[in-house]
């Protein structure tokens, strides 16, 4: 990154980005500095990836790929946005790409056990096994969470990304705009559609809200 005086107007002032020093060190080849950034952001990255894909192992792979991509590209990072925003953008893109691959694979190979079963009523979900040992309360919560996750997965990638970033990760509209590189209006309208679709899905999945 460059000094503040050299920054263009749309750049985040270096003082705002808490990662400025670490990023600068990384750009100078300091791998340990990058490790600190990985440690700091891995959990959030993983949760974004997991909520977008619904698969923990896939999410881990996506996060690894995203950090690797970030390391390769970190010298090109010029501080137009916060480093964290840049990093989340990378993981969202990797997750989207993974979803496209999975969709393409499932289109050619047929459905998997995890896929929602399309019925006349809309998507519904396979009953999870071995629930007997769990308490009813926990069982219900777990079931609900799974259904919510399945509903998220029923959204298209764009709606999914906005919903995950806003309602799960609770980023501001401004941050989402920067992460997804979308105009404000698009973010808001996508979020509305995503929530609406989720509502319909959850109503079907849970019976009533």
């Amino acid at each position: 990154m460059v000094a503040m005086s050299n920054m263009s107007d749309n750049r985040i002032p270096t003082a705002v980005d808490a990662d400025y020093e670490a990023v600068t060190a990384c750009q100078e080849g300091d791998v340990a500095a990058f490790e600190a950034l990985v440690d700091k952001y891995q959990k959030k990255m993983l949760n974004i990836a997991y909520r977008m894909t619904g698969d923990y192992d896939d999410a881990c792979e996506i996060v690894q790929e995203a950090f690797l991509s970030a390391y390769r590209a970190i010298k090109k990072f010029r501080g137009e946005a916060r480093f964290s925003t840049w990093l989340y953008g990378i993981v969202v893109n990797h997750a989207k790409n993974r979803l496209k691959q999975v969709q393409s694979r499932s289109f050619h190979e047929g459905t998997s056990l995890d896929d929602p079963v399309e019925t006349e009523e809309g998507p519904r979900f396979r009953e999870p096994l071995s629930q007997e040992a769990l308490a009813v309360d926990e069982l219900e919560k777990k079931e609900i969470r799974e259904k919510v996750q399945h509903c998220i997965e029923s959204l298209d990638e764009e709606q999914r990304a906005v919903l995950v970033l806003r309602d799960i990760q609770e980023f501001s509209y401004e941050e989402i705009r920067d992460i997804l590189k979308l105009p404000d209006g698009t973010v808001k309208s996508r979020l509305f559609r995503a929530r609406d679709a989720m509502k319909k899905c959850l109503k079907k999945a849970l019976g009533d809200l």
């Binding site: 959990k43 949760n47 997991y50 609900i144 969470r145 919903l163 309602d167 959850l202 809200l209």
Partner: peptide, 8 residues
């Protein structure tokens, strides 16, 4: 419901 999803 969405917000109540646990963190992994």
């Amino acid at each position: 419901l969405v917000k109540n999803l646990d963190e992994v």
